[in-house]
Design a protein around this nucleic acid. Structure first.
Length: 578
RNA sequence: CGGGAUGUGGCGCAGCUUGGUAGCGCACCUCGCUUGGGACGAGGGGGUCGCACGUUCAAAUCGUGUCAUCCCGACCA
């Protein structure tokens, strides 16, 4: 490719709306162009990167025994009603009507479609197992798209779905996919961690996410991991052992009583007023899960993990209640307490979910739905709350201990680039997707699903590989391998040398750009760094002594070679990567 | 959903307070000069100032409405 003909425009400044590194870099270097919030055009350079990632994914998926197909992007409501997700998916599902007023949606994921395809074709146990995948655009109408390609509304995804006879088959395929994913991200030049996670809207029981760990602030997930064993988990799923703390208040309170605690609206104020550690307070929080109020109980020094609570309550949407909603709830139950004095006592006909650690608390302090009062020396058994459930709803915090080996957990930010789920029969059962076994009996397929964000992976690669001058693409996913920069295009020897190298490299299968623009060297160098070619060959004055300059973008390492040496070296490196 | 801010050529911005018919840098075109880290000079093309209505002799500028975009937050009691 000749740079003079390349459809790309680099900018002098970073786009004003970009916050994170990958968005800034990809915008400024001319890789992406925004059309609407969360919706981008992939310019030719970007498209080359995406195709490289896609091809790596394809190769590894095919190697792992999966088969590629392509399903429709626009889908009819009926299938989503079969699975029950038309009602529950929420506003992320982009719904629309066709000219006949039929309800349709843009595919955010394809469990429904693949299940309907499979059930018509896979009738016999002899046909299983099968793993089908596709690479296509997805649309999710995110509340707040941001961070460029990291959280777009339209994005490219690889999604695979496996169909097995039984759990054992699924377990095997799950491991198979985990291995393929490891290879894929390794080949893309990305360091990933496979972490346990919540299974979210897709559903199912077991799931893992592949996280790119970066030092930029683009990671939207907190990942807890252990240096001493293999434990790692997304914060929405992480568990831990708690360090020792005061959880029995017998040294503080000698009997159960209700006392005045004026103006103690916060845990801090309350623990100060009573002169006790906050571990002796039971905190009561009101959440709205699928429009219904839910009371969450947790030790006051700990926080509620909303996804866990949502799952425990069996909902799909969660938020903390507004003060108006709390007032309404209080009125409904016949209390007048303001926030700060809420408690589980007397809250009938409402879900009350206590964190498991609350079980161990004794003689604690709790709100009793009376403003300016608390009960001290309380125990849950005394309170006789029959609608009380226990679940793990606690957010793990730094400093807590590994659930496997007891060493302190570490925390870091991660970008989720892939995930794998065990779906089980979540879709096959309601959609009646069954096969016939040896004995002529039918069973629903046992399914798994496996996603990779192709466009997000590209952005994550930028987050992981950049410097102040621009992108430093890993060779395997760089749009081109090499840029040749003749310093002065009017110098005959420089141009002749550059063109010979250009042709020789091309003939050997190296993807090379010749920067034949009539620009000053500085401009070409800036663009080369910004765009992020892994290698740069500069053909300048030193060619008069027979040398060109060879520079590695990643390390900044710089060497002098003859044009022939440089050509051979590059061909060797690129062959090795392929 | 709540709060804040912003909409002026492809990109980044000024002008608005105090209305008088649009400007700067980058990019683009022409000529000259220059050629190892975003040169310089001269000339040139491109915008009904988000949209609508209103006030006025006159609106990018004032008023009302509307649309869009960005950021923050979404209450840990």
């Amino acid at each position: 490719m000749k740079m003079s003909k390349m459809f790309v425009q680099t900018l002098r400044e970073y786009p004003s709306d970009a916050e994170v590194i990958s968005h800034k870099m990809l915008g400024r270097a001319g890789y992406i162009k925004k059309l609407a919030p969360g919706i981008y055009t992939f310019m030719p350079l970007m498209w080359r990167v995406l195709k490289k990632i896609e091809n790596i994914v394809r190769e590894e998926m095919d190697n792992a025994g999966a088969q590629e197909l392509l399903m429709p992007f626009v889908q009819p409501k009926e299938l989503w009603e079969e699975s029950g997700r038309w009602e529950v998916y929420g506003r992320e599902l982009m719904r629309l009507k066709d000219r006949h007023d039929r309800d349709m949606c843009l595919g955010p994921t394809h469990e429904e479609i693949i299940t309907s395809v499979a059930r018509d074709a896979l009738k016999s146990y002899k046909q299983l197992p099968v793993n089908l995948y596709q690479i296509q655009s997805k649309f999710r109408d995110e509340i707040r798209p941001r961070y460029g390609l990291l959280r777009g509304r339209e994005f490219i995804m690889k999604d695979a779905y496996s169909f097995d006879l039984d759990e054992a088959g699924l377990d095997k395929e799950y491991e198979n996919m985990a291995r393929a994913y490891k290879k894929i991200f390794e080949r893309c030049g990305l360091d990933t961690k496979m972490v346990q996670s919540d299974s979210g809207a897709i559903g199912g029981s077991v799931s893992h996410e592949f996280m790119v760990i970066t030092d930029t602030d683009a990671g939207e997930n907190d990942v807890f991991y252990c240096n001493d064993c293999d434990y790692s988990a997304n914060s929405n799923h992480a568990i831990s052992k708690l360090p020792d703390a005061v959880i029995d208040g017998k040294d503080y309170f000698n009997k159960r009583e209700i006392i005045d605690t004026p103006n103690t609206h916060s845990i801090e104020e309350l623990s100060k007023f009573l002169n006790i550690p906050d571990t002796l307070i039971l905190k009561s929080l009101v959440y709205i899960v699928d429009k219904q109020p839910v009371i969450a109980l947790i030790r006051a020094d700990k926080a509620v993990e909303e996804t866990k609570l949502m799952n425990a309550a069996g909902g799909i949407e969660i938020r903390i209640a507004s003060s108006a909603e709390i007032a309404e709830l209080m009125a409904e139950k016949g209390f007048e307490a303001v926030p700060g004095f809420i408690g589980p006592r007397g809250m009938k006909n409402i879900k009350i979910i206590a964190d498991k650690t609350v079980r161990d608390m004794k003689n604690f302090v709790v709100g009793i739905n009376e403003t300016d009062k608390h009960m001290i020396g309380a125990n849950l058994t005394d309170l006789r709350i029959d609608n009380l459930e226990y679940a793990d709803i606690r957010l793990v915090q730094q400093g807590e201990l590994c659930p496997q080996c007891g060493k302190p957990l570490q925390v870091t930010k991660g970008i989720e680039v892939g995930n794998i789920f065990k779906l089980g029969t979540k879709y096959s059962k309601p959609m009646n997707a069954v096969y016939t076994d040896v004995n002529g009996k039918t069973h629903p397929y046992v399914m798994g699903c496996y996603g990779i964000g192709i466009s997000r992976t590209a952005a994550a690669a930028v987050e992981a590989h950049y410097d102040e001058h621009g992108i430093k693409w890993p060779i395997a996913i760089a749009p081109y391998h090499v840029v040749i920069v003749p310093v002065n295009i009017n110098d005959e020897l420089q141009m002749k040398t550059s063109e010979k190298m250009y042709h020789d490299l091309q003939a050997a299968g190296v993807e090379v750009v010749l920067d034949d623009r009539d620009e000053r060297a500085g401009v070409k160098f800036k663009d080369a760094d910004l765009i992020g070619f892994p290698f740069r060959v500069t053909v300048g004055k030193t060619i008069n002594e027979g040398f060109v300059e060879y520079k590695i973008r990643e390390t900044g390492e710089q060497k002098k070679y003859t044009p022939e040496e440089a050509t051979l070296k590059l061909i060797g490196i690129i062959k090795a990567v392929k």
